[in-house]
Amino acid sequence: MTVPPPPQVPYPPAVPPPPPSGRWRPERVDAMPGTEFGLVQLRVEPITSGLAIGSLIAGIGSILASLLVLCFGLAGSASGWGGWVSGAFTLLSVLVGGGAIALGAVARRQVRTSGRTGHVRFTGAGLGMSGIVCGAAGAGIALLSLALTLVLQISV
């Protein structure tokens, strides 16, 4: 009586993917030849760039400071203190606007160069561009408001 050979198992055995959890999701599972193990490559979720968010916040702050330049300049031009106060807020608005422009440029570069295999991928290029535009608009409005304030103060 002959004994039949044992059933053949495909070599290497198929490696089941790990169970999906809330945060880590496998992107690819590679079987390791000669073993029963596999190499799991996890998907790295994209992250919104903090620099882009900071750029947008600074740009909005620059616009708000430029509106203070206009308000204080118009309110104090007749009394003579409008030029000083609006000049101080103009300096603040231009500095914050310049910071928004710089942060936006760095954030756009960070988004453009991210995403290589195995590295974190950043998003937020639009936020960075919005920060650049808001920072430039805030600085421009502040400088024009200061010029208007000085013209009004000199003419009174």
Score class of each variant (00 low, 15 high):
G124V: 07
T149N: 03
P18A: 13
G138M: 04
I141E: 13
L143Y: 00
G126R: 13
T90R: 14
I132D: 00
L91C: 12
V40F: 06
W24K: 13
A105E: 13
G87K: 04
V106Y: 07
G83N: 08
S93H: 02
R28I: 01
G131K: 05
L42M: 12
L146D: 02
F72P: 00
A78K: 08
I53N: 05
P17L: 07
A107N: 02
G97H: 15
G98Y: 09
P6C: 00
G140I: 02
P7R: 11
G124C: 09
V156Q: 09
V94I: 15
T48L: 13
R121D: 00
P6E: 13
S21E: 15
A100T: 03
F89D: 00
V156N: 15
R116M: 12
L39I: 13
T2F: 05
L91T: 15
G138T: 08
I132S: 01
V156W: 11
P7D: 06
M1P: 07
S49E: 12
R121S: 06
A137I: 13
L70R: 13
P19A: 15
G83V: 10
P16Y: 00
G99F: 01
G73S: 09
A65D: 12
G104E: 09
P33H: 01
A107W: 06
C71F: 02
I154D: 10
T35D: 06
